[in-house]
Design a protein around this nucleic acid. Structure first.
Lengths: 211, 211, 211, 211
DNA sequence: AATGAATGAGATTTCATTCAT
DNA sequence: AATGAATGAAATCTCATTCAT
């Protein structure tokens, strides 16, 4: 049967192919984790030959880089938009930012079942580290503005943002969190409260989209 | 060279051998990461045959379990001691607990160079998750007592402890943190300050051993 | 816990232990096949140490020998008894012999599920070959006597017996045979009929216990 | 020596390579038995890398399947040809068929020395079972036609064929049979005679090529 | 007679990467 | 740009057997 069909060779622009590969890899890395995903899985998913992969990427780890980069760029872009929205107060923008992160966390939870979540330590770790590195400055700017406008009361904006973001990351990284509604409710209240305290805002300034 | 000598057969009690193996594995997992460590590396390190490993552990992942378990048991034990020290105030005990975690983080940093730290995502992730799960209750008890004695002002002790611990974990997980002395100093001040705010204590209640 | 009990060392006569080991091995070889059975399985089954095995048997294959030998000796003994029963006609004794083989086949089918039956190729093969070698003379004697008494009409008693036995062996070796009642009924009639023809007896001389 | 040369990479069509591998495996399985043959033996025999094997077969057992399949297909094809030869009587065709089986048995005996024959229990068993399943219908058809044309006198063609074939298989499976010329002669006469009786033909209808 | 920890060879399998076409 | 067969190193795990006690 295989012999009856001539494998049609579709040449695309390098960028198109690269993106297809990154798309496939993203899904697989999320589903099965980086280590558990073979290069052969990636190429099979978009029906190209093994060699094609190595035409576009030097190695398997290079595509991880690309996946992570693209993922983060998207987040960063959205975050920057939120941060640049001059129509909202600093507190409102900070609130938006946090809720955006929550949305991201939720959508990736949908892809990852608990069993596979562990396999993702590597990718999650990378994404988290890089995201932190890139997001902290953006959010810190909001904080800084908030301090200047008198909305926030914070000593070290950058470091505080760093600490706040790490706390958020960890919380949303916990498996099963979104399912335990009672716990989620307590976490919501706690986080909102702690944000108020850490940023020196009045109670109930922040409202997280956790339900 | 190795080939010229027939290995001398030294029988030990299973417990001894098991511990030797766990010791070796711990070091290697920290140095090179779990995936990058082969069972053959472990046995070579203590000069036993490959089969010896499988006499004591059913699989490679079983020894990871053992490594993690032992690591955490030690931490838990120390933490419980700190927490049970009735001679100190809640704040002092909480302070001790945090400094103990810092000490652990520092000593594991010594083993892990930055290059290899990434390989450790899996083990770090496991340790972190389990440690959190086991440590949160212990620390939360301190917080709870502090609330009762009026030292702390916290709404949800467990959730707050969870958030605080996650923030700490993340901070100390950051590569190169301990080397950047300036940043470290700012982080120290920030964390101390945020702890005060989150726990509702007077400024400068907490003093972290970060230098 | 293990430390609290002192493993009681029970010394038995070599013959007792040997037999225990053969018993265990027989069951395991039937259940899982020779290759799939580890020496460690055998010793675990009767709670003795690995070394004990090698005190009684030089090698794993030696115990297979022993298992097969004992199995066959039992068959041979029963067969000889049947064959020596001077109160019955040759045809009746031959009939008894065949039915005895059927009984053996049935009882081993009970132990072996179809999945594992394939693993038993080796043991079955051995048993079959040796059984044939030892049983053919015994049965051939009955045939010979039957020829002399005029009951049978056979040219080469030994070779004929050999052929008849091989046919029987194969038939009963077939997986699932005993379950397919319809087929079994046809096989029964066919075998009875062919036996009559091969031995030159009147129709319905032989009645096989297949139901 | 081998280490000094880098293997030249020769790409062939999957079918070619697959067949090369099956060829090599067939010989080795016959010579040493399935268990005793390592995948590394197979690839060494045709000078390809270990990985090449797994590019073409999912597992070692898959190539056993392939070996057996090909073996049997060849037999089946030849048998069908014999069976379809309308120019010969049923008896003549049945005779041809039996002689063809004898030829197969003889040629495989050449490869298998007695010592290694035992290792082949698994493969022989498989081949025998499958061959029986596929050959019985073909031969039974001849028998059936013979009954209709009045050449044979048989009650249950299928079951009778089954019994006859099993007897033949076993006989030719016996080690050393072909070497013991005297015994072979007696077996020849006996089989010829029993075939006549079982199929209800006149004496000396069948002539087996055993010498 | 018995113990059981230790041995070590060897087997199957995976997979990132290469390269001739 | 793409193909896909081939590579080969490396890894985990099994198990018959040994041997000091």
């Amino acid at each position: 049967m295989k012999d009856l069909f001539i494998m049609v060779r579709i040449a695309k622009t390098p960028e198109e192919r690269r993106n297809e590969l990154i798309d496939a890899a993203t899904v697989l890395f999320l589903e099965k984790g980086y280590d558990e995903t073979a290069v052969s899985d990636i190429v099979k998913k978009i029906n190209v030959a093994q060699g094609t992969f190595y035409y576009h990427f030097k190695s398997k780890s290079e595509i991880l880089e690309a996946v992570v980069d693209r993922f983060i760029s998207e987040i960063e872009k959205a975050m920057t938009e939120i941060s640049d929205n001059r129509e909202k107060s600093s507190a409102a923008r900070f609130n938006d930012a946090v809720n955006f992160l929550i949305k991201i966390a939720e959508s990736s939870k949908e892809v990852l079942d608990d069993v596979h979540q562990e396999n993702n330590a590597l990718m999650h770790d990378r994404i988290a580290k890089i995201t932190m590195a890139r997001l902290v400055p953006v959010l810190a700017r909001i904080v800084h503005q908030g301090v200047e406008s008198g909305e926030f009361n914070v000593h070290h904006p950058i470091e505080s943002t760093d600490v706040i973001l790490s706390a958020l990351f960890w919380q949303f990284h916990q498996p099963g969190l979104m399912e335990d509604k009672q716990r989620l409710a307590r976490i919501k209240i706690t986080l909102e409260h702690l944000l108020d305290r850490m940023l020196g805002t009045a109670d109930h300034t922040f409202v997280l989209n956790l339900k």
